[in-house]
Design a protein around this nucleic acid. Structure first.
Length: 91
RNA sequence: GAAGUCGGCCGGGCAGCCGCUGUGACGCAAGUCACGGAGGAAAGUCCGGGCUCCACAGGGCAGGGUGCCAGGUAACGCCUGGGGGGCGCGAGCCUACGGAAAGUGCCACAGAAAAUAUACCGCCUGUGUCCGCACAGGUAAGGGUGAAAUGGUGCGGUAAGAGCGCACCGCGCGGCUGGUAACAGCCGUGGCAGGGUAAACCCCACCCGGAGCAAGACCAAAUAGGGGAGCACUGGCGUGGCCCGCGCUGCUCCCGGGUAGGUCGCUUGAGGUGCGCGGCGACGCGUGGCCCAGAUGAAUGGCUGUCCACGACAGAACCCGGCUUACAGGCCGGCUUCCUCU
């Protein structure tokens, strides 16, 4: 997956997800990924500050377990938080 | 007990913590509490209807759909019951099942011939003969080809044969009986009409306006533009040689359209259910009690523990009725056939 980040003028982060039909033709699978991203975002939002974030997902993600996805997201959030002073960035 | 067939149902459970969302109560608010929160297919979007907006005198044509009969329904391409045909020992299953003597078209290959009919091998008669057969005529029983070849079986008949004649079956026509009907049975009659294909054109009967909740309605910034009234100047600019005229231009107020955004539509409905009644049934009627998702970047999730049979297909988006397709595993009941025991 790819996470895009850009500073916003608010005191809190905002999340968007882009999970296309190419990721999976099955709506239940797409919902599962979106909910995982959202849950992980909820747990890390204090870390992220005033940013707008978009999570882009590619087809390979289908085969990963919840555990794998959550730990990957955790790594991403920490990388973004570490770049606190560099402004717009892609991870 | 085995095999089968039909119908119905379930689709991980429990607990803890952290979340999301709707409604209600409380609160100035932040929020707190209570209750609710995906499916049998929510799927495909293939039919039917409601609802909304648009169009519309009536009729016809075109186009599309449906196609045995009766019933159910808001309606249907759905369902129920019945009839015909096919398959199965049976329970049961399948069935586009109107018309081919209204017309037109098509029928590969093989075959003599695929629909105007016709004769390859045969069979029979006659004539000729070099005794191998040839020619003329009759015939369509047999062989061969094909998915399909001018009704089937038997007897008579004949040179050989042929519905040529007869009996039975089949088919057409007429009548009678039963049935609401489809249709069935029986009686009489005709020696037989004459291939298939109508999910080929077509004919017949019946049905059908279009678009869809991003429908549609309401509230309504900023910016730009439009309309009206008043005031000011009796100004300025353009057109023109000039006057008139025409167009543009200032300020204030009012008006409507409408974008972003918001609200409604939005879930009480041809709703579901207990009982009673009517009906073989689909279903209908009466009555009691029930409220059962309503989001809008779009909620129904995450983590942990535990148990087991280790969890399939799959995510509401205006709402219903169907159809079709996908589905790990499991449960219940009716019926059929076979085997065994009593």
């Amino acid at each position: 997956m790819t996470i895009l980040a850009i500073p916003n003028d608010l005191q809190h982060p905002r999340l968007g997800t882009a999970i296309s039909i190419k990721v999976s033709g099955n709506a239940v699978q797409r919902n599962r990924i979106k909910r995982l991203v959202r849950e992980s975002f909820r747990q890390h939002q204090d870390l992220l500050g005033g940013r707008d974030l978009v999570v882009l997902v590619r087809p390979g993600i289908r085969s990963r377990s919840n555990q794998q996805l959550l730990s990957a997201l955790d790594t991403h959030w920490r990388t973004i938080a570490a770049h606190a002073h560099t402004g717009s960035d892609s991870h």
